[in-house]
Structure formats: structure tokens, C-alpha cells
């Protein structure tokens, strides 16, 4: 299965989400990564053998979702898209500077819910 985290602005939240999913420790260098728009970034394989990707997007979300799920159907590949756009808000980006632990826990909770982990 391919798990694709999609996001618009918050590269840090996306990286953190993927690392939390993969149960890796995020280094300072990794936390400052930025991603090319509309390019699939492979992060690794989780314990359920699912491939984890990040995708920063700039097109309409429903078109992106239709394309990704449509491709999954065409190529008989199970795909799951997890939307991180709720973490794109500027306020949340600012809050991370003041309460990283809460932010990390919120993100972790969201990922667990989405993945039924």
C-alpha cells in the first residue's frame, strides 16, 4: 500500500508526520527540509510494509485526490491519502515555536486516527 501525506504549506508538519508514522527520530537537518511542489517524495516503509510518501500540492484538492485514487484503481495499487492541510494554518506554524510537545502530540494523534494505528 502507498500512504501519501499531502500538504500545501507546512513542510515541517509533513516531515514530522511522516517520521512519526515511520517511528523515526527527526533530526534538526530533516526538520528543516523543504519539498518541491507536485513531486512525490519517498520517505520509507512502515511496519505494515506500506510505502510512505509526501506530496506538496498547489492544485485543487479534489482534483488531486481524484487523480491519486484514480491511479490506484487503474494500476491496482492500494493508496491512502492523508490530508495535512489542517496543519497549514499560520497560527499553528507559530504555535509550534511555543509548544512543540503539544503540537507533536496533536499530529501523532491525527496520524494514528487516520491510519488506525
Amino acid at each position: 500500500m502507498k500512504i501519501i501525506y499531502i500538504f500545501r504549506k507546512n513542510d515541517y508538519a509533513a516531515t514530522l508526520a511522516a517520521y512519526l508514522h515511520l517511528k523515526l527520530n527527526i533530526s534538526l537537518k530533516d526538520s528543516q527540509k523543504s519539498y518541491e511542489i507536485m513531486k512525490l517524495h519517498y520517505l520509507g516503509i512502515d511496519e505494515k510494509n506500506s510505502e510512505v510518501y509526501l506530496l506538496k500540492y498547489n492544485i485543487k484538492k479534489y482534483i488531486l485526490m481524484n487523480i491519486i485514487y484514480g491511479l490506484g484503481n487503474i494500476f491496482n495499487e492500494e493508496v491512502r491519502v492523508i490530508d495535512l492541510s489542517r496543519f497549514d494554518c499560520c497560527l499553528i506554524q507559530i504555535l509550534t515555536k511555543f509548544s512543540f510537545k503539544n503540537y507533536k502530540n496533536t499530529l501523532k494523534e491525527y496520524i494514528n486516527d487516520e491510519n488506525n494505528l
Binding site: 507536485m38 513531486k39 510505502e51 506530496l55 482534483i63 491519486i68 484514480g70 491511479l71
Partner: peptide, 26 residues
Amino acid sequence: NEVYVMGMGAYRKEGSELVYQFVNEL
């Protein structure tokens, strides 16, 4: 060959690149 039709709105370039990337990953 399987023949499909896909509308991509105003994002044909981005959509096409995404399709090729996805297939490349597979």
C-alpha cells in the same frame, strides 16, 4: 492497450507529471 480518459482541469502539466511519477514509483 487500455484506453482511459481523464480531465485534469487547469492542471494538465502538474497532473501529467504526477501520473508519470506514480507509474515510475510502481
